[in-house]
Design a binder for these strands. Structure first.
Length: 201
DNA sequence: CCCCAGGATTGCT
DNA sequence: AGCAATCATGGG
């Protein structure tokens, strides 16, 4: 079922983009992304790039109000400014050790940073650190619910990881496909395409 | 004008 | 343990 969904989406969706940049840049994107459109995250990232501030050293030392203004277009800019600075200090302190730590330890460390919840932590693990952790998001839960499988973040994540080979590239591609599919076809109120998915099984 | 986006935290029950 | 309120800008 999990495998079949992958091949179904792979046929239906073609991706033109997905998370690129340095490890730090990808992490910053993950911290800015919650509950905001990616186009707005890009505006914030571009502001930081143009100001030449997209490094852990500069972000941790920059004035908080200045940082707020730069990332304003992505929303929640007050909390996100604080989170970026705390994460930047965390990054300088622990990133290198984290890359050699085992996956569960690295995840625990990331979750201790304020503003880093499960999805953000797993996004950083998978896309920035290239560790085999499957990222679950709202669309994942919604699509599986349409297919008759109800669950929360942890149970659904376990389901994917149990039914897939532990392959970073596959995890990245699958999650990206889910998000692209969700953006197009899953809304709060209606979910027309999920009927098509069920028919195929 | 209304709804919501690639969530996380806090506080209440 | 699960639920609601809160955060805030920009797009459809």
């Amino acid at each position: 079922m999990i495998q079949e969904l992958y091949h179904l989406l792979k046929h239906k969706i073609n991706l033109d983009w997905w998370w690129q940049g340095s490890e730090f840049e990808i992490s910053v994107g993950a911290l800015l992304a919650p509950q905001t459109r990616w186009s707005n995250v890009e505006k914030a990232l571009n502001n930081l790039k143009k100001a030449n501030l997209l490094s852990p050293e500069k972000l941790s030392s920059i004035d908080e109000t200045t940082l707020q203004e730069l990332i304003r277009p992505c929303g929640f800019y007050r909390q996100k400014a604080k989170r970026l600075q705390e994460f930047s200090r965390f990054y300088t302190r622990e990133w290198n050790d984290l890359k050699f730590a085992d996956l569960d330890t690295a995840r625990e460390k990331l979750l201790q940073v304020r503003g880093v919840g499960k999805e953000t932590a797993d996004s950083i693990l998978l896309y920035a650190m290239e560790k085999p952790k499957f990222v679950v998001d709202a669309y994942t839960l919604k699509i599986l619910k349409c297919l008759g499988i109800d669950g929360n973040y942890d149970t659904i994540q376990a389901l994917f990881e149990k039914n897939l080979p532990s392959d970073v590239k596959l995890f990245k591609h699958y999650h990206a496909l889910i998000v692209e599919f969700g953006k197009r076809y899953c809304n709060k109120n209606r979910c027309n395409e999920c009927e098509i998915l069920t028919l195929k099984n």
